[in-house]
Design a protein around this nucleic acid. Structure first.
Lengths: 156, 156
DNA sequence: AGTGAAACGACCGTAGA
DNA sequence: TCTACGGTCGTTTCACT
């Protein structure tokens, strides 16, 4: 699922203020946001539409994995021989993998996985990750505690 | 910012269906969701309220760091001597750190950082992370490409 | 890009099963 | 925990700047 990325230059302060409001509550009304940022409802709505269509922002529900029955998360460091891209593609196609990033460092790829149990995690890594062509090593960092997860950059 | 976590047992299929709708569009109307899941508007509203108050779900704007002027992201593996908790707390308090997880493995903590430039990243790691009491080693995984980031578990 | 106004639809509180 | 309903407020469309 690649993000669309229409050009859309850097954001002005008003759009940043709108985003800040929606980071606190994605359902806050355009009218209420307009009062804070000093714009009419319609203007706020237009800017939100442009921001979402350009891919700069999206308004979504994010869930707590534990409450959803996924009690075990882990980050997997992956070392690859040969081309990295096809490996990254295959990883991204796995439903239990929710985050894939190509990195510079002692791993070529970091992949976050969400599982229901330790046994499912082990099976996933052994049978779906380590069997991908080009993967030569993996290291599992089991999550003991998620300490911070924010969707607001720079602010608060 | 610790999550509140009222007890609230495992979710039934209706609540999962509601969440699925809101993962696609966090602003979808309660009435429209009700038609899909077979519930009245008010019932959907009550369930969404309970889900958000229990911390199982939140509806927020998530942004593209590049569009927001944060062109450089990295994952930092942190090795700690002594108690891990105070280090995790200090890391979580840093604004540029958006994700902190305590892990089992060759790092004790993984922290994701969001910066405007390479120089800011370097300064952050050297002056704010490595100076924390108990941190004995860090390893930086600079993000070359974010390949996948989904907020929907299990589905699609 | 922005405003203002009127019609429409969504949301909220309350009552009742 | 759900439905029903009425009042209030938010959203949408459109003509205008």
């Amino acid at each position: 699922m690649p993000r669309d990325h229409k050009p859309s230059g850097p954001l002005d302060d008003v759009s940043k203020a709108i985003i800040e409001q929606l980071q606190q509550d994605g359902r806050r009304s355009y009218a209420a946001i307009g009062k804070v940022v000093g714009l009419s409802e319609a203007a706020v709505r237009q800017r939100v539409q442009r921001l979402t269509e350009s891919g700069a922002m999206q308004i979504v529900a994010v869930t707590d994995p534990v409450e959803m029955g996924f009690a075990r998360q882990a980050m997997v460091g992956v070392r690859v021989v040969g081309s990295i891209d096809p490996v990254a593609d295959e990883l991204a196609a796995i439903p239990e993998v929710d985050y894939v990033v190509v990195t510079a460092g002692s791993y070529d790829i970091l992949a976050e996985v969400v599982c229901e149990s330790d046994s499912q995690l082990l099976e996933l890594v052994n049978e779906k990750l380590r069997t991908i062509d080009g993967v030569v090593a993996t290291e599992i960092f089991v999550y003991l505690r998620l300490q911070k997860q924010t969707y607001s950059w720079g602010v608060r």
